[in-house]
Structures are given as C-alpha cells and as structure tokens.
C-alpha cells in the first residue's frame, strides 16, 4: 500500500515540477526543453516500479524496471552477440545494400521519363504494403542466418528510399535547370552540382524512415526462423519461457539501437543539409 501512495506522490511531484518548469521564464532554454521530457520519463519509470512492487505484480506479467536493469547488466555478453547478429549484420547490412540499390535505381528512373511514370506508382503502392510478410519466403531462400534478415531489410527499405530519392531529384526548380542550360552544363555537371545537392533533404528523409524499417525487418524476420541468437530470436524464445525481464532487456537494446541509428543519420543530415530552411530554424 505504501508503494502505491508513493507512486501517486511521485507522479504528482513530477507533473507539478514539469508544469512549473513549462510556465517558468526559462522554459525556452535548451536545458529545460531537455529536462522536462526527462523528468516525465523518469517519473513514469518510478511509478512503474512502485506499482509493480505495491501490487506484487508477478514477473511473468510485468517485471519492475529495477529487475529489467539488473537482467540487462548481468546479460551484457548475450545482448551484445544478439545486437551484432541482428543490428550490425542483419539490419545495417540490409540497410546499406537496400538504400544504395534504391539510390542507383532512382537515378535511372529519373533519367527515363517512361520509367518514372511506370515505376513510381508501383513503388508508392509497394511502399504501403506489409512487406515484412516476405520474411518466411526470404528465410526459405537465404537460410536462417543473417543473410535472410538482410534480404528482408533490403526489400523493406528499397521502395521508401526509391520514392523519396526520385522526388528529391525532381526538386530543383525549372529556373535552376534553365540556369544550368545557359551554362551549357553536361548531364553529369547538372547532376552533381545542382540536382544531387537539391535532393539531399529528400534522400535523408528516405534514409531516416529506413532506419526504423531496417530494425523492424531484421527483428520480425527472426520470428520466422533464425540461428540460436539475435534480438528477435531472444525475444520470441524468452517470451516462450516467460522470462520477461530478458524480453524487456532486448527491447531496451532495440530502443537504444533504433534511436541511436536514427540520431546518427539525423546528425549527418544536419551537417549535409545545413542550408535547408528546416535545419536553420
């Protein structure tokens, strides 16, 4: 009972603090902008801990954050090999291949109007489909190891990346293309000096969307078969053994990997497209 009261108090205190910070004179500063969501997150975790303890929620339903943290700390070697298998090999491998392939195809599509008319609607259509469902087929073709996961990721990221890149390559205005005409610039010169830089915001949009898709693809594909390691494998087997602390630990890894992956791409974007209005604000 004590813990439940404490949970309520923590919630009220955290929210009150945030409300005060949000209304205070320093609410526009960077530190506070960072602090408020942090307090909110921390409050949530504390309340979770107190409620689980107070109500004696069994481990097989919801483990307390402290239990998850302990499991995380004691399972670092396992989490690491799973991370290497699923993220570095499956997700990252497929991401690089898929995005590079989509980029090259996008240049072709952009060059030939007929391809653009024909492939773009198909690409838009496919981008909305539940592509992760191809996992059983690709596992059958490429085996249980990371290659099949990378293949799923390639298929998942290909179309969003293609559609974004093609849209980006058309972003340069008619006037800027005319300017290139007046310089009698070659296709290559106009491409590298005008259209590619102008396309960068779109290309990075595709790259950012793809980071999340890559991780989803790599994890879900493991539900259809994998060697005895990998984040998806660990999640599905641990769920079967009702070892939910391990499941949560893997989810923490997935969350950290996902946001770090996205963050790195976003940082590169900031450096490359510093000139774009969305980055200047």
């Amino acid at each position: 009972m004590m813990e439940l009261v404490l949970a309520l108090l923590i919630w009220a205190a955290g929210w009150g603090l945030n409300a005060w910070l949000a209304r205070s004179a320093v609410s526009e500063t960077r530190a506070v902008q960072f602090l408020v969501p942090f307090i909110f997150g921390a409050t949530l975790v504390l309340v979770w801990e107190m409620v689980v303890r107070g109500l004696n929620v069994p481990m097989v339903i919801l483990p307390a954050p402290s239990v998850i943290a302990m499991r995380f700390a004691s399972s670092l070697p396992i989490l690491w090999v799973d991370f290497v298998q699923t993220f570095l090999k499956g997700a990252l491998g497929g991401y690089v291949i898929g995005c590079a392939a989509a980029f090259l195809v996008a240049i072709l599509v952009d060059r030939y109007d007929f391809l653009r008319r024909g492939l773009l609607p198909v690409g838009n259509f496919v981008a909305a489909l539940p592509i992760v469902g191809t996992a059983p087929i690709l596992v059958m073709w490429f085996g249980f190891d990371w290659q099949s996961k990378a293949a799923v990721v390639v298929v998942m990221v290909f179309f969003p990346m293609l559609v974004n890149t093609v849209a980006g390559l058309r972003e340069a205005s008619a006037m800027q293309r005319d300017l290139m005409q007046t310089y009698a610039a070659s296709y290559g010169q106009a491409f590298f000096k005008l259209r590619l830089p102008a396309a960068m915001p779109f290309i990075f949009n595709g790259l950012k969307i793809s980071t999340t898709l890559a991780l989803i693809g790599a994890i879900v594909a493991e539900f259809f078969g994998s060697p005895t390691l990998g984040m998806g494998f660990r999640i599905s087997t641990s769920v079967g053994q009702l070892a939910l602390d391990m499941v949560w630990a893997e989810i923490v890894v997935a969350a950290l990997a996902g946001s770090a992956f996205y963050g790195v791409v976003a940082l590169v974007e900031k450096a490359v497209t510093f000139w774009h209005p969305s980055q200047r604000a």
Partner: peptide, 19 residues
Amino acid sequence: ARQARAYGYVFQAAGLYPW
C-alpha cells in the same frame, strides 16, 4: 551560342544555391 557560353542570364528570382 549557348554551347559557346556566349551570354550570362539573370532570372527574376536570384536562384542562388542555398548550399
């Protein structure tokens, strides 16, 4: 004349590359 880069052209908008 265009191939020989015989003229400079100025458009209504500056159209400078922001990058």
